[in-house]
């Protein structure tokens, strides 16, 4: 029997799990912006003194007239973006995750979400992987605080290719979006030609004992966990829940029906993020045991990303352990 069953064409061909191609997700954002700049004259970008870091420098250099530097003033940035939207533009507001969500929360709430402005908030440097910068810069609450806002769409692509698609697609909608990505190089493994639809989860692997529902960088970590689990003859479905809101309720309920237990994995607080969102659906529609991988109601600290994943329980080994716990809890 096969314990690892890849589905469809969602991953690139001949994927080498040991030695994948690496590419920055933030670069996927930057490259997509440049293409959007060419095809859509209404796309404008706001910079918060971190343009080189979040890669809006690529758009800035290509379309200097449509790039607005607002300095280090994230609250002002969100308000300005709302105003640009009223003037018929499609503003992309981008900075680091914490400063894109936590700092200007009320401006986002009132002027973007409540007012339903066509603003795309694109956050780089999210999660534990900013490593040595420490807790102030490790954005672990952003998905939660964006997800609780009515009208906000929340997307957490997994790699360069999917970030590129998410950014390209979000501009076709008139709704507010929050798109989350990362600083570091990470495996680029999703098929660039595979379809991408907000709110429709990707089932990457089929399995029978448990379903892992993961987001962002943790999808790759989960793929490594599948290998460990296969050695112990445990077969898992793996879902890439790239859209946290609106969440794919059918995929979650079907997974609970088919495998009777779930593990959620995110580089974020367990409270309020993907884990919370999945548990909300299951509690209402089909209760099943859930194990959570993520930050356990704690802030991070300085350290290398791999050290932090190890210390805070986010590594593929932790995921494999969580799967075994979930399987044991099945009735």
């Amino acid at each position: 029997m096969n314990y690892i069953n890849k589905c469809g064409n969602l991953l690139i061909d001949n994927l080498d799990l040991k030695n994948p191609e690496h590419k920055e997700t933030r670069r996927g954002f930057g490259d997509a912006l440049v293409e959007l700049g060419k095809s859509n004259p209404n796309v404008v970008v706001l910079g918060g003194d971190v343009s080189g870091s979040v890669r809006t420098d690529l758009f800035r250099d290509a379309f200097p007239d449509r790039f607005f530097s607002v300095g280090i003033s994230e609250q002002d940035m969100m308000g300005t973006a709302a105003g640009l939207a009223l003037a018929g533009k499609i503003p992309i507001a981008s900075t680091y995750g914490e400063f894109a969500t936590g700092r200007p929360f009320d401006q986002i709430r009132q002027s973007i979400a409540y007012s339903q402005m066509n603003v795309k908030i694109c956050a780089s440097h999210c999660g534990f992987t900013v490593g040595p910068d420490g807790a102030t810069h490790q954005s672990l609450e952003d998905v939660g605080i964006m997800r609780i806002l009515p009208h906000m769409n929340v997307v957490t692509p997994v790699d360069y290719n999917q970030t590129y698609k998410a950014v390209t697609e979000c501009v076709k909608s008139e709704h507010p979006f929050y798109i989350r990505f990362y600083r570091d190089n990470s495996p680029n493994y999703t098929n660039p030609d595979a379809p991408f639809e907000f709110g429709k989860a990707d089932t990457l692997y089929e399995g029978t004992d448990c379903t892992i529902i993961a987001s962002g960088l943790m999808v790759w970590e989960s793929m490594l966990a599948l290998e460990l689990l296969a050695e112990e003859k445990i077969s898992c479905r793996l879902i890439n829940m790239h859209t946290i809101k609106p969440i794919d309720r059918n995929a979650i309920v079907q997974a609970a029906k088919d495998t009777d237990c779930i593990v959620t994995c995110e580089d974020h607080q367990k409270i309020g993020g993907l884990g919370g969102a999945v548990a909300e659906v299951l509690a209402q529609e089909y209760p099943a045991p859930v194990e959570f991988i993520g930050a356990s109601d704690t802030f991070g600290e300085s350290g290398k990303a791999v050290e932090l994943y190890e210390k805070y329980g986010l590594s593929f080994r932790h995921i494999a352990e969580a799967v075994k716990r979930a399987v044991k809890r099945k009735k």
């Binding site: 910068d133 420490g134 102030t136 300085s302 350290g303």
Partner: peptide, 18 residues
């Protein structure tokens, strides 16, 4: 500086935790 389990966090950390 900036090492895991240390007190010299990348950005100054609160007294109560570090």
């Amino acid at each position: 500086l900036r090492k895991i389990n240390g007190r010299l966090q990348g950005h100054p950390a609160p007294l109560k935790t570090h």
